[in-house]
Amino acid sequence: MKVFALMAVIITGAALIYSTFGMPDWGDADSPANTHVSPRYIEKSIEETATPNIVTSVLADYRGYDTLGETTVIFTAGIVCMLLLRNKKDD
């Protein structure tokens, strides 16, 4: 059984390494991820939101709805832990 697991891991790893041949180099400033939408955030952050930390302005302002869902996720996780484990008295 462990042999099959090892084979699956090696095949998946080989496929992933093959896929890196098409990736841009490490630190390439002209890669698609660095040129599509992020220059807009860097240029407009200070004049639109008055926040020098771009991570904060994107997290809470441009993508505030995303962070609302995130907060709900951790709230739900806390409530689930409480519901699963908490018992006031020994039953």
Binding site: W26, G27, A29, S45, P52, N53, I54
Partner: peptide, 15 residues
């Protein structure tokens, strides 16, 4: 690691 840029790029906090 995708986010990094070579050539003296700093953290995304405007100065």
């Amino acid at each position: 690691s995708i986010a990094s840029k070579k050539g003296g790029a700093t953290i995304p906090i405007l100065q």
